[in-house]
């Protein structure tokens, strides 16, 4: 299988936030990258060929990313870049494999990186977790976590402050999306502003939970201050996937283009949203139930929000108004990000 770029780099290149993907051979690095950013289905990862050289993939969301997928045997010397070039280093450990070697290699990289830039994000993905039962999964996860910390402190007590983050993941469920979302959040400078916008949106629209999703990868780039419930997160992920899949099914060769034309012309039609796509799924037959709304914010991003069906039905106008307000806020923040990155290229 070819490792094609998920998103082609734009003609004028911007300064990208770099993420380094490390791990033993067959630990699942390429699978993770392909499932998240290249629309590969989890089952298809079975047919991926071993990575023999470093593959750099770019992906554009709130911030432009560059993800380096490395072969299992890469070393500091063969990496061809300084660790300080990266904002985040992700090390993938196969939960079903023996840990000794990967943990030792991981610590070599992490220590080197930490010494060069103490602010770097160090992420451990304990991967292929779906194969185990919940209890056994957690037990193994704790065990690996403890082992890493013990070994680190054996090397030197100085590393007590090293900020390590552990995640339990699998490409076969949404755990990889949730974990990678959290990895991504630490890299977004404007995150607090996005979170503020989401908090304001929730308060004004009586929404109990809202996510700003990157539509193609189905990572959420920000959410409001209320805690993330995994079930709700998974439902949102599936919902975005459903909507992504629906479009092409009923695409008309004669009429769909005309719709788009109207969309770009219309500043604001009589009522209803002026931006595609927007959608709503109602859960439970009565107005006591919940509705999950979807609104396009930028070509890459969509706002997903949970609210009472009664609120959705009775205050539709207010909701649309709040979405417009939110959209303007996000677009402004995106523009600031963009300008900052273009500016830093010039110097």
């Amino acid at each position: 299988m070819q490792h094609s770029n998920g998103t082609k780099s734009p003609t004028i290149d911007v300064q990208r936030t770099k993420i380094l993907l490390l791990g033993q051979r067959r630990s699942g690095k390429t699978s993770i990258q392909q499932v998240l950013f290249n629309d590969v289905s989890p089952k298809q990862t079975f047919y991926l060929e071993p990575t023999t050289r470093i593959v750099k993939d770019t992906y554009d969301t709130v911030i432009p990313l560059e993800i380096w997928d490395c072969p299992g045997n890469v070393t500091l010397d063969t990496l061809g870049a300084s660790l300080s070039d990266f904002s985040s280093i992700i090390f993938v450990i196969d939960i079903q494999d023996s840990y000794q070697q990967p943990v030792a290699r991981m610590l070599d990289f992490f220590i080197a990186a930490y010494q060069e830039s103490p602010d770097i994000c160090l992420e451990v993905l304990v991967h292929k977790a779906e194969a185990f039962t919940d209890d056994y999964k957690i037990e193994n996860f704790r065990h690996i976590q403890q082992r890493v910390i013990d070994e680190l402190l054996d090397i030197s007590q100085d590393y007590e402050q090293m900020p390590l983050n552990f995640h339990l993941t699998s490409v076969y469920d949404h755990s990889i999306h949730e974990a990678f979302s959290r990895v991504l959040h630490k890299l977004i400078d404007s995150l607090p502003y996005l979170e503020d916008l989401l908090n304001v949106f929730c308060a004004n629209s009586q929404s109990s939970k809202a996510f700003l999703f990157d539509v193609k990868s189905r990572l959420y780039v920000a959410t409001d201050a209320s805690p993330v419930d995994t079930g709700t997160h998974n439902l949102c992920c599936d919902y975005v996937k459903t909507l992504n899949a629906f479009g092409p099914l009923y695409k008309s060769s004669s009429s769909s283009a005309a719709r788009l034309l109207r969309d770009s012309r219309s500043s604001s039609p009589s009522s209803g949203p002026s931006f595609y796509p927007s959608a709503a799924v109602t859960l439970a037959p009565s107005t006591q139930g919940t509705t999950l709304t979807y609104h396009s914010i930028t070509p890459q991003l969509a706002l997903l929000a949970l609210m009472h069906t009664a609120v959705f039905e009775e205050q539709r106008g207010l909701l649309e108004y709040n979405v417009v307000f939110f959209r303007e806020g996000v677009q402004e923040i995106s523009q600031v990000e963009k300008d900052a990155r273009m500016g830093s290229l010039v110097v």
């Binding site: 439902l235 919902y239 927007s278 139930g289 919940t290």
Partner: peptide, 19 residues
């Protein structure tokens, strides 16, 4: 997916670029 969060799918409306 809905049933996994103990919700029941009921209705869906979409305004997509295509339809």
């Amino acid at each position: 997916s809905c049933s996994r969060v103990r919700e029941e799918f009921y209705a869906l409306e979409m305004e997509l670029p295509e339809f």
